[in-house]
Design a protein around this nucleic acid. Sequence first.
DNA 1: GTGGTCTAGACCACT
DNA 2: GTGGTCTAGACCACT
Lengths: 129, 129, 129, 129
Amino acid sequence: MIHIDLRSREPIYEQLVNNIKELIFSGILQPDEKLPSVRELASQLTINPNTIQKAYKELENLGYIYSARGRGNFVMPVDDKSGVKNSVELLKKITELVKEANYVGISKEFIKQIIEDVYRKKIDKGGIE
Amino acid sequence: MIHIDLRSREPIYEQLVNNIKELIFSGILQPDEKLPSVRELASQLTINPNTIQKAYKELENLGYIYSARGRGNFVMPVDDKSGVKNSVELLKKITELVKEANYVGISKEFIKQIIEDVYRKKIDKGGIE
Amino acid sequence: MIHIDLRSREPIYEQLVNNIKELIFSGILQPDEKLPSVRELASQLTINPNTIQKAYKELENLGYIYSARGRGNFVMPVDDKSGVKNSVELLKKITELVKEANYVGISKEFIKQIIEDVYRKKIDKGGIE
Amino acid sequence: MIHIDLRSREPIYEQLVNNIKELIFSGILQPDEKLPSVRELASQLTINPNTIQKAYKELENLGYIYSARGRGNFVMPVDDKSGVKNSVELLKKITELVKEANYVGISKEFIKQIIEDVYRKKIDKGGIE
DNA sequence: GTGGTCTAGACCACT
DNA sequence: GTGGTCTAGACCACT
């Protein structure tokens, strides 16, 4: 379930990164599970392999996957990556967005409901393409 | 209280946009309040006026400020801007980040506390430079 | 003083990374000093700009430089980067090499002398190309 | 005591090479001692025999082991291998890393202590698997 | 002018 | 088969 919008202002490789992060966070891609090969994904999405490569490299730098030459790319198990620094960054971003939600008049109950839904995994998933 | 980090990977104009959005959401900049002029802010921050101009233009496109020819730039009052489309986008972003928080093991109580703090305006503010 | 050996088994971009790290560690490149632009270095070394870009990106990931679109790449000041994790890795590598030196019969006095020389900056430098 | 990390970015054959070098430098593998056979090690580590073969071949090229047709692979005695060229390379590498240590603020006393520990064999060993 | 993205296509390294 | 490196060349984004 990877969807790339070629017209988007967001770079293709970044869309890929976000799509795959989504699949990992949703549990659709399990720890140590193999991702599609660079060439395979490139031909499926009709995107240049270099772009896929770049996205995978970025996901590796971010600590979400690991790469092994001759074998493939795999989902990094959770314990190995959740650095404190990243969590702080994440909470900062959430705080910014909640401030904006407050400003535009979204009720706090609404946001709390989102949190409940996410933590109960009620929110829709999707299989890999 | 605008802080620009010249070392940041984030483009300067984008830092400006985010800084000013922050000031608006926090209520430090009030509806219809005048923003510093392009030249003034440029000289204060020792940044190219074109970059300030670009940030103001972006804020206008996003619906957070309006520009009055020959008079300056002003904060857009809330009712005039809070489009449904923007709110949907905002909630999507929050949902994504909450999923990630869940994935890395941050408790939902922790996030709910952030929401409480933001809505009670307990979170620190800052005045314009 | 960047020297690339096109025949080397070591990838070009990696040679670049090591060369530039050298320049930084030797103090030839000072904190916040601007590196040659991607295109400039590419034409000087007659190497594809993409390869220079890749090396700079890697140096950024490693925390040795920072990159700013439209402005250039700059040496990251020391305090911002020297993570504990990296130091541990570094000391591990040194330990491995010292074990090997011991094995092949290099005296410990010899190695200690190297350390003295490095810390007294007696070891030869070189200017950027 | 050979440990292979399938998740590591470092190629498996290279991990093998480094592991075995370690065992040799630590004296756990003695001169002229026989290494496990390719098949034996492959089945122990559940790794492709071709990969083991490649690692052994590499160790032979580096001068750390020798292969005797039909009998197996053996540790090369010290006097036969410690080429001047290798020592120079080794000292270069150590110098580079010590420069980095200096740059990131590690004290020279700290490094000297490592040297003392290694030469007194205080540093922990490990037996072959 | 400066960095960043992307394609097309070749070739190498590892399993 | 799989990831990684590199070139050539086009075009976009930011200052």
